[in-house]
Write a protein that binds this DNA or RNA. Sequence first.
DNA 1: TCACTTCTTGAAAGCGATATCTCATGACGA
DNA 2: TCGTCATGAGATATCGCTTTCAAGAAGTGA
Lengths: 339, 339
Amino acid sequence: MAEKLRSGAMPTLEMVAAQAGVSRATVSRVVNGSPKVSPDVATVVQAAIDELNYVPNRAARSLVSRKTQAIAMVVPESAAKVFDDPFFAAVVQGVALYLEDTDYTLNMIIESGAASHKTRRYLLGGNVDGALVVSHHTGDHSYSELSRTLPVVFGGRPLSDVGGDNYYVDVDNFAGACTAVEHLIASGRTKLATIAGPQDMPPGVDRLSAFHSTLGKHGLTSDLVEVGDFSPPSGAEAMRRLLARGEPIDGIFAANDQMAIGAYSAIREAGLSVPDDIAVVGFDDDNYGSTATPPLTTVRQPSVEMGRRMAEMIVGLIENRPVDTVTTLDTELVIRDSA
Amino acid sequence: MAEKLRSGAMPTLEMVAAQAGVSRATVSRVVNGSPKVSPDVATVVQAAIDELNYVPNRAARSLVSRKTQAIAMVVPESAAKVFDDPFFAAVVQGVALYLEDTDYTLNMIIESGAASHKTRRYLLGGNVDGALVVSHHTGDHSYSELSRTLPVVFGGRPLSDVGGDNYYVDVDNFAGACTAVEHLIASGRTKLATIAGPQDMPPGVDRLSAFHSTLGKHGLTSDLVEVGDFSPPSGAEAMRRLLARGEPIDGIFAANDQMAIGAYSAIREAGLSVPDDIAVVGFDDDNYGSTATPPLTTVRQPSVEMGRRMAEMIVGLIENRPVDTVTTLDTELVIRDSA
DNA sequence: TCACTTCTTGAAAGCGATATCTCATGACGA
DNA sequence: TCGTCATGAGATATCGCTTTCAAGAAGTGA
C-alpha cells in the first residue's frame, strides 16, 4: 500500500510531458541536455520537471541505453577479512569521492574465493559498466581475463602482467623503498637489514630489490634479509631471526608498517631501543605506524589518490576516452621518530 | 564495435525461449522458479539457459518489477575522511558479507555535506530499495525523514530518536562501558577518572553515564571527567587536564581507543607508567589499541556483526518481513596489558 | 460421453526511457 | 512567389522482462 503510494508518487517522463504540454521526446531531450530544443520550450519543461520533482528512472534508461552507470568494486574476501589494513578503506574512499562527481554508482562486492562463479556472472551479466579490482599486497588477478569482456582496472600491478594489457594504478614501490633506505643511510646508519614482504607479491619484490639497489649505490651491501608476510607477528619473528644472526644492525627497513611494528617488539625484547640502537623505517603509513611508540618513520602510499585514479581510469575506459595503461603514483617519506 | 559484440553476445530471454522451443513467458517462469511449470519443460529450459549462459538483465527486470535489488550505504564524508576509523570499514564488510548471499547489491555512496540534494534525489529517485546510514560516533541523522519514503536502517542510535520510529542497530554502549569500569574496580583501582566522548553523541553520553553509574554501584564517585572528541590528540589533552587537577588517579576509562592512546602519551609525559601507575581501559577495540604499547585493554564492538545485522534488517524491511525496530549488540571486554 | 474444474503454456500488454524518422514551420535565395 | 533547407517537436519502435489473460490439454464426476 505504502508501496503503491510511493511508486504512484514517482513522476514519469509522460507526466512531465503532460504538465509541460509537450511530447515525451521533448522532455527527454531537455533532461539529456540536447541542443535541439528551443530555449523557451526548455524553460517550460524544466519548470515542469522541478515542479513534479522528476527524477529519471535509471532502469528504464539503462534498458535502452545499455549502460548501467554502475561500477563494481571487487574486494577479495581475504582482503576484507584482514580489514585491519586501512589501505583498502582508503582506496574505496578515493573511488567513491571521484564517482561522486559523476553519474556513476559504486557497487561493492566482496569476493569469496577466487573469482567465484557468482561474481563473474554478476560482472558479465551486464550489471555494471566496468569493474575495479583491488588486492593490495596480493598479486592475484584472476580477473585479468574479464578485461576482454568488460573494462577492468586493477589496484596494484598484476604479478603476471602478461601482454601488458591490464590497466592498473600502482604506487612506485621501488622508488619509495629507495627513499626509505636513503634516509637510513643519510642518518648515518650503515649496518642495514630488511624485513621483506612475500616474494610472490609485486610490492614484496620491488621493495626488496630497492633495498639492495640503494645499498649498492652507496657501496654498501647486506645479506641481512628476512621475509615476513606483512603481518605484525611475522615482522616480529623476522626481526628475531635477524637479531639472532649475531651481526651488528643499526637500521631496519621493513616492507610495511605492520611488520615494522612487529619488529619494534622484537627489538625491545632484545633490550634494544628504537631509534637509539636500531632505526626503523616502514612502508605504507597506515595507523599502525603513526600511533606506535615511537611514531614510525615510513613511506606514505597515496591510497586515497590511488582510488581516485582508478575511478578516473575506469570511467575513461567506459567512455572510450584515451587512457594510459598504467598510472604510477609517487610515495612520500614521512619522517617521524623511529629513524 | 567490441561494444556491439558484447551486447550481441548477451543472450536474452527471447533467445533462450527459441533455444528451448518455448515462449518467453515460460522461460521467465523457470528463471523465477515459478511452481506452475511442468518439470520436463523446466528441465529443457534450464538446459537452454545453461548452454547460452543466460543471465537476466537487471535493468529490464527492475523496470517492470519496480525493485532495484540494490541497497545504498550512505557514509558521511566526515566519517570517510577520518578513515583512520576502522569501524566503518568493518561495518561495510559485514554488510557486504551478508548481502553476498542475497540478490542485493551494495551501492556505496559517500555523502558530502549533510544529506546533499544529490544524495536525496538518488535515494528517492528509485535507485535503491533501501538505505543504510552509518555515522558511528555522530548522532547526525538528517536522513530520518527519508524513512517515511524508503526503508532506512541506521548504524548507531539516532540521537533524537523521536517517535522511536527509526530502525537501527547499535552496540550496548552502556553495558560495555560498565564492564570496563567494573574491570578497573575489580583490579583494585579506586581513584578513577574518565575521558568522555562528545556529549552530543549517543556513545559519548552512554559511556559516560555508565562510568558514573558503575562507580555509584560500588559506593564510589568521581568528578574527574574531561571530554574529548574521540581523536588521539583530544585524548592526550584531556589526560593532561585530568593530571593537572592534582588529584590522585590510578585508573582511566577512555570512551574510545583513540583517546586512550592519546592518554598514553600524556601519562608518559608526566613520567608515569601504564599500567603500573595508571591503568587504562578503552572502548572499540580498533587497531589503535591492539598495536599500542602496552596493548590496550578495551571493550570490543562487534562492528562486522553490526553491518551484518543492518543488512539483515534492511532486507527484512524491504521484503516486508516483521523486523524489530532496534537491535542491540553485546560488547566484550578484551583484557590485555593496560589494565 | 458431456460439462467443468485444474494445469500448462502462449500471446500480448506494458514498465519508463531513448532515439530514429517524419512532419511542420519559417527563413532565405532565386 | 515558389522551392530548398535547416530546425524544432511529435510519433513511434524498441530495450528485456514480468505478468495478467486467455486458451488448449488433461483429468474428474455424473
